[in-house]
Amino acid sequence: MEMPRRALLKVIVLGDSGVGKTSLMNQYVYKKFSQQYKATIGADFVTKEVQIDAKLVTLQIWDTAGQERFQSLGSAFYRGADCCVLVYDVNIQKSFEILNNWHKEFVKQADPVDPEAFPFILFGNKIDVDGGSSRVVSEKTAREWCASRGDIPYFETSAKEGYNVHEAFLCVAKMALAGEHEQEHDIYFPGISETVSEVEQRGGCAC
């Protein structure tokens, strides 16, 4: 069957070690959560097809290692990104504080044409832990930070329970598509084969 040419959108997921980057991606793509994920070494990716309005796009979501020491690899992995997802753990202050650093490093290493306009998005993960009682970063604090960074969209998620994960990534896809430079991708990926061929139907994005 002849498939229409699809846009491929490259998404980078960044955040401190152990905040749940791998879990979020796997929840989104495979609808599974596991306690057995290993630490990500280097970077890895999954793909998923999403339909946005009339357009079918392939999200290529890159998972990265959380330890800061791996940051020097960034420029290689961030190249050509269409959107950057920042993740922190609402139960760990440090994972929130370090967001500035991740943001800055991404801009520096990905070197987008227009850093001001480059689409970022923030996920506050693990809101399920202890029923929310161990939470240390409030939603308000997080939204303030987002506002200070040029109104980047914010989602509270639980990869474990699958809460808000689809909505959050759908927003990612829309933002990435909006800012995409088509030619770049169509040259390289004329008809990418996907690992997950589920078509996302829902629309509507908080952003």
């Binding site: 290993k38 070494i41 280097g42 970077a43 890895d44 690899l73 290689a76 992995f77 190249r79």
Partner: peptide, 19 residues
Amino acid sequence: LDGGEYLFAFRMLMVLFRR
């Protein structure tokens, strides 16, 4: 393919094929 850095082999070397 812009892969001359062979970064796709990063993990194999770091953890000696554990994954």
